[in-house]
């Protein structure tokens, strides 16, 4: 089973990363984007049970003061639902994921002994009146993903 945990900033708290992303888009000369929201995403591949995944999300991956999480679950990538007007960036197979090693260790420290594979990725959701696939491609290639070591999916 594949679990994806997306972390979002709670309403009422500012996220300086989103502000600077919007700025970068404007500098590239792309219009029609009113705001962009960034989510770190953690993919856990394991036979672990749902409750434990919630514990991992709640106690480890989310800062309970400023963040909240959502979990989606699927068996194969075809089943996966992707949000509209979004870009997801993941490392290509074989590229070292340094953060995932830390997460695996931290999960063990929680007392969870199941075997897990962890992958880390980034999700960007866009809002605005003039968003097109072409613009999203430009943004992705322009500064969100380096296609040498990362691959991206647009919807």
């Amino acid at each position: 089973m594949i679990y994806e945990i997306a972390i979002r900033t709670k309403k009422g708290f500012s996220n300086s990363h989103n502000v600077s992303l919007l700025n970068d888009i404007k500098i590239m000369g792309i219009d029609g984007v009113e705001n962009v929201e960034y989510f770190p995403v953690y993919r856990i591949i394991s036979d672990i049970d749902d409750k434990k995944v919630s514990v991992i999300a709640n106690e480890l991956l989310t800062d309970r003061i400023t963040e909240e999480f959502s979990i989606s679950k699927y068996k194969t990538s075809e089943e996966k639902e992707t949000e509209k007007n979004s870009i997801e960036v993941w490392l290509k197979h074989g590229v070292t994921d340094t953060v995932s090693e830390s997460v695996v260790k931290a999960i063990k420290d929680l007392g969870i002994t199941d075997n897990v594979i962890v992958k880390t990725g980034h999700k960007y959701c866009f809002n605005g009146s003039g968003i097109t696939v072409e613009k999203l491609n430009k943004i992705a290639k322009g500064f969100l993903a380096n296609t040498l070591i990362q691959e991206y999916k647009i919807r």
């Binding site: 480890l60 991956l61 953060v99 997460v103 929680l110």
Partner: peptide, 12 residues
């Protein structure tokens, strides 16, 4: 490495 968030893993 400040992975996940600063201090989170050590705190955990």
């Amino acid at each position: 490495g400040d992975d996940i968030a600063s201090g989170k893993i050590l705190a955990n």
